[in-house]
Design a protein around this nucleic acid. Structure first.
Lengths: 230, 230
DNA sequence: GGAATAGTGTCTTTCAGACACTATCTG
DNA sequence: CAGATAGTGTCTGAAAGACACTATTCC
């Protein structure tokens, strides 16, 4: 590295943090995985929310700034952003030299509905289905974020870090059926009921009242037991 | 994002790319995983090689620049750098606001021995064993790089992307014994001979001459068959 | 023959996948 | 009762772990 004197003279890139924000709508009844996109006018089109890092800010601070200013999220929860990849094509922003640190994070639907932006559906491979494209290099960010999310839910899940709904899309307590529907929404595929239950059971605590399991009230069929994360 | 006019006025961070460069010494006889560290005087101590991104450079270009200028590697091979994590503590460099994009990459020993720097041994958890510490936040970079490397060799290996010596530390052709010793050096643990061979066999092509398998000449014992990656 | 290393055969355990069955609710 | 959903029992097949055995070389 060059000394302090020479360090200041080189041009520096603007560093942006772009966010793929996931949520699962209706997690308790018919879960639906969505990503938050926003309309912008400057070059008109849909984008992921993001911001440039302000002076001596950290990524965490920049993420909090995006959530507050751009998404209008109340400063309650601040989830952990996950670094996905970086985009460094010098021509990716035609206004200036800018690099982007693409992150993803997950929020429960209750905190995101009604805020600024649209919770967009997307294809199994991450593309927006209704012909809308994302500006810049934001489409591959959604793909990368989706792959990371699915790996954490169903791949690493089995071998490394098995956890029921690690991003807490679903509020406690929940039934095994609800948990499975959420996992199915995330991975975009059907999961076998019995195998899924067998894998999850050891990671859950049944909700007890006076030593008896508490049951969910349901419109039809045998009531299901309620669980918390173990 | 702000418009073009306001975009230039904000202070920008210097963006460094720091590299954990792995190699396996003696891959064919007694493999030994090492990481390249370099001595520097400015604040005196050992560091990972790295450089700030020059104007409108990409990460790949910056990595190539580090390898050529700091490691004095001839411009032959340019391996793929793997983004590990980023370090954004505003106080991490007391000279200026600087963030670091920590990457790791792997090189065959033949290309690295004799170049600038020392190929340091390290503990199972990534610390340098002889009491030497790394400056700045370079020690956690080695830890993160080691975890990533081991996952790719022995975890993902089994379930996702099974590959014999994916980073090509070992030159072809090789025996199953040599391949296993390299994997053991990387993961830092003994692997069962028969299970390892059974897993690897389907991913290898035996080296044939006139339809017969070519055997390695060995000092003692039954000669082993030679293989290439499949 | 004996030491050393390469390579095979096989038993056991674990676990995912799949299917069938039983249990308990509502109307 | 029928219909619907929850939950259990069990068989099968694939693959890892572990162990024993055979094969081929050099001395």
């Amino acid at each position: 590295m060059p000394g302090a004197s020479s360090l200041e003279i080189y041009p520096r890139p603007a560093v942006a943090v772009d966010l793929a924000i996931f949520t699962v709508l209706d997690p308790a009844s018919s879960p639906d995985l969505r990503v938050l996109i926003q309309w912008r006018d400057d070059p008109p089109g849909w984008v992921l929310p993001g911001a440039f890092m302000r002076e001596r800010a950290t990524v965490a601070e920049t993420v909090a700034d995006v959530l507050r200013r751009k998404v209008t999220l109340p400063a309650t929860s601040t989830p952990e952003p996950r670094l996905l990849r970086m985009f460094d094509d010098p021509e990716r922003d035609d206004r200036t030299w800018a690099i982007s640190l693409a992150h993803s994070l997950s929020l429960p639907a209750a905190e995101v509905v009604g805020l600024r932006g649209e919770l967009a559906r997307f294809d199994p491979d991450g593309a927006l289905p209704d012909g809308r494209g994302l500006l810049f290099d934001h489409a591959p960010i959604v793909s990368a974020a989706l792959i990371e999310l699915r790996e954490r839910y169903e791949i690493r899940q089995r071998f490394v870090d098995l956890a029921p709904d690690p991003d807490r899309f679903l509020a406690e307590p929940f039934t095994l059926h609800q948990l499975r529907r959420v996992h199915e929404a995330v991975v975009g595929a059907a999961l076998h009921k019995d195998n899924f239950n067998r894998r999850m059971k050891p990671l859950l605590r049944p909700l007890l009242r006076r030593g008896e399991p508490v049951l969910a009230s349901q419109p039809r069929g045998r009531p299901a037991a309620l669980y918390r994360r173990g």
